[in-house]
Amino acid sequence: MALADGRPPEFRRVVSFHPRGGRLNDVQRRAFDAHADRWYREAAQFDRPLDEADQVELFGRPAPLVLEIGSGMGESTAAMAAVRPDVNLLAVEVYKPGVAQTMHHLARAGVDTVRIIRGDGVAVLTDLIRPDSLFEVWLFFPDPWPKTRHLKRRLVTPDFTELVASRLAPGGTFRLATDWAPYAAQMLAACSATDELRNAASGWAPRPTFRPRTRFERRGLAEGREIFDLEFVRR
């Protein structure tokens, strides 16, 4: 039996990261000043999960909702949104310069289908996203925390994948990528252990055609690391 908000009964609150500050450069400051009113929200501004009316107010239109956790500096976010104009993309990032740089890339690309929330990805999933409401969740190249003493900081655990599954609509897709083989194995194991998710590729998935080669991906390839993509679908 699920909890009232759709979480599995064995769910324990997992933690990602808290918002981080940082000085904006001139480009970032101009982008933030020009576009924050339309494109930007703080997670703390919301006091309840978003319903369909809230999403229409936020994006200016009804469309399938995609959540990207950890949009970083936003270059790939803008590129992906440009080739997926059929979806509303809610990008979550903790680093303020990354938020502002994302606005710069969105403006240069002429994309107006992305809204950015500065906050913790887990908290956004838990508190702002209704069960069974997401079309897709993207988690591309999260911090692998490679040192043994930091492994507990990795985001993708069975608790996290159960949370993602509870927020996806039936048939919705959870897309992940990493260039760190041990973390890839952990991602695969955690997603495979979640009853509500099935592996759409029966193993590693091909890189989604809409996802460009990210900075982290190019760095990993240059250093001789393999790229691992995963695609899991909510049953």
Score class of each variant (00 low, 15 high):
M1A: 13
A2S: 12
A2F: 09
P8F: 00
P9V: 06
P9T: 04
E10R: 13
E10Y: 07
F11T: 12
R12I: 14
R12Q: 11
V14K: 06
V15Q: 13
S16V: 03
F17I: 12
P19E: 03
R20L: 10
G22Q: 11
R23H: 09
L24S: 09
D26T: 14
R30E: 14
A31V: 07
A31H: 05
F32C: 07
F32A: 05
D33I: 02
D33P: 10
H35T: 07
A36P: 10
R38G: 09
W39K: 01
W39L: 14
Q45S: 15
R48T: 09
P49L: 00
P49N: 03
P49G: 00
L50N: 06
D51L: 02
D51C: 06
D51R: 10
E52W: 00
Q55P: 04
V56M: 02
E57V: 11
E57M: 09
E57Y: 00
G60S: 06
R61G: 09
A63E: 03
L67T: 10
E68K: 11
E68Q: 13
S71T: 15
S71K: 06
G72N: 08
G72K: 08
M73H: 13
G74T: 09
G74N: 09
G74D: 06
G74V: 08
S76E: 13
T77V: 11
A78V: 08
A79D: 12
R84K: 14
R84L: 13
V87A: 03
V87T: 14
N88F: 00
L89R: 12
V94Q: 13
Y95N: 12
Y95M: 12
G98T: 12
T102M: 11
T102W: 00
A107K: 12
R108W: 00
A109K: 14
V111F: 01
R115F: 01
R115P: 05
R115A: 03
I116M: 03
I116G: 04
R118S: 08
D120Y: 06
G121C: 04
G121P: 12
L125I: 10
L125E: 03
T126L: 12
L128C: 07
R130K: 15
D132V: 09
S133T: 15
F135H: 15
E136C: 04
V137Q: 03
D143V: 13
L151T: 14
K152F: 00
R153A: 03
L155H: 07
T157G: 05
P158E: 01
P158Q: 01
D159R: 06
F160T: 06
E162G: 08
A165Q: 05
A165T: 04
R167G: 07
R167S: 08
L168N: 02
L168H: 01
T173F: 00
T173W: 00
R175S: 05
L176K: 05
T178R: 04
D179S: 08
P182N: 05
Y183V: 10
A184L: 06
M187P: 11
L188S: 11
L188W: 03
A189P: 12
A189T: 15
A190W: 03
S192E: 15
A193Q: 13
T194H: 07
E196K: 13
E196W: 04
L197R: 11
R198E: 14
R198D: 10
N199M: 07
W204S: 08
P206G: 02
F210H: 15
T214K: 03
R219V: 05
L221A: 09
E223F: 00
R225I: 05
E226G: 01
E226L: 06
L230E: 01
V233C: 04
V233R: 14
R234T: 11
R234A: 11
R235T: 14
